[in-house]
């Protein structure tokens, strides 16, 4: 198992370097090395590109993927269902609805408001949206007590949210519409280094909290009654998973748009490669796989930099074959 982590870490470092050097301008590895480890001369021709474009992008990729993969893991753990994930359960759509309401109904874009206000507004709306949807799904799950029905409810909620979003799009102005559509496609290039760094710190705090409570996640897998009899309170466990999931999904959706599928496939790939669900390790593995998937998606995106391909398109095309393969080849994956 140890050599798999070593190989994965090796690949991750390689992917980060490649991701730094890829883009509309190719930057040699030696310069990337200098930029990351030593101080690159500010007079260097690539310095501005690396610090203003590439660093925010790579940080965004890492922050977004950790947010998504951890929330995917939490949702799959909570519902004990391999299909659960922020995108499938409609939580991302909830965040989108929040952002859509903020961008499309208000008239903020024309106002001379500071960029920070808009940022805070968007992230607040996204967190509020994802939290509301998560709560609705949570209450539905209490009444239904059947994970398949909960998934159906999640998909229906997502569809309803999308319907309201298209209604809002219909009645909004061209400028608002444009900025919403770009946001909705998902992008790692809008957030600044500072924003991504803050999100990264928040995700790492969440990860540490989850590692502290990893035995709750383990025990939860044994079933409601066994978990309760072992001393895990459903109330506190739900509070933990739901607050962290809505915070992470809200943050990542606000700044990187509703990024699809990373949350769903990272735990699956981690399970398959590392063959464990002991959460002390599984949380870390899932996070690493999440970063891996996101970096590959971003590198592919950079290969087609000239076409302005949306991030979601690449991730969907990349993950669908993986998901289909997992569900066909690894039937014992969950049940």
């Amino acid at each position: 198992m140890k050599h798999r982590i070593a190989i994965l870490s090796f690949f991750l470092i390689g992917l980060i370097l490649i991701d730094f050097s890829m883009g509309s301008t190719y930057i040699p590895f030696s310069d990337v090395f200098h930029f990351l480890i030593f101080k690159l001369d500010t007079q260097n021709e690539y310095y501005t590109i690396l610090s203003q474009l590439r660093l925010p992008r790579v940080l965004s990729a890492i922050a977004a993927s950790i947010c998504l993969s951890i929330s995917g893991l939490l949702m799959q753990n909570y519902f004990r269902n391999p299909l659960a994930g922020p995108y499938v359960l409609g939580i991302s759509s909830g965040a989108s609805l929040g952002v859509a309401t903020f961008i499309l109904s208000g008239n903020f874009l024309n106002n001379p408001l500071t960029e920070w206000f808009i940022h805070i507004g968007i992230s607040g709306a996204a967190i509020l949206g994802s939290m509301t949807f998560l709560l609705v799904i949570f209450f539905i799950s209490l009444r239904l007590q059947n994970s398949v029905s909960v998934l159906i409810a999640g998909i229906l909620l997502g569809t309803a949210a999308n319907a309201i979003i298209s209604f809002l799009q219909n009645i909004s102005s061209g400028l608002q519409l444009q900025s919403f559509v770009y946001w909705n496609m998902g992008s790692l290039q809008n957030a600044s280094s500072q924003t991504s760094f803050i999100i990264l710190i928040v995700t790492i705090i969440c990860l540490v909290v989850l590692l502290k409570f990893s035995s709750w996640l383990d025990l939860w897998l044994t079933g409601d009654e066994q978990a309760k009899s072992a001393g895990v309170s459903q109330k506190y466990y739900s509070l933990l998973t739901f607050s962290i999931t809505s915070l992470l999904i809200g943050l990542s959706t606000a700044f990187y748009g509703p990024v699809a599928f990373v949350g769903l496939i990272s735990p699956h790939v981690a399970r398959m490669i590392f063959q464990t669900q002991i959460h002390k390790r599984f949380l870390i593995y899932t996070t690493l796989i999440g970063i891996f998937v996101m970096l590959i998606a971003d590198i592919i995106l950079q290969l087609f930099a000239f076409t302005n391909l949306p991030l979601n398109t690449v991730i969907s095309l990349l993950s669908l074959p993986v998901l289909v393969y997992l569900f066909i080849k690894k039937k014992e994956l969950w049940m």
């Binding site: 035995s215 709750w216 383990d218 025990l219 897998l221 044994t222 079933g223 066994q226 072992a230 001393g231 895990v232 399970r271 063959q275 464990t276 669900q277 002991i278 014992e332 994956l333 969950w334 049940m335």
Partner: peptide
């Protein structure tokens, strides 16, 4: 009824969550 949790080994299962109690 106890479901067979995937990707958990028997020796891990016996002491699963033991930190908690």
């Amino acid at each position: 009824y106890n479901n067979k949790i995937p990707y958990i080994r028997l020796n891990e299962y016996i002491v699963l969550g033991r930190k908690h109690y």
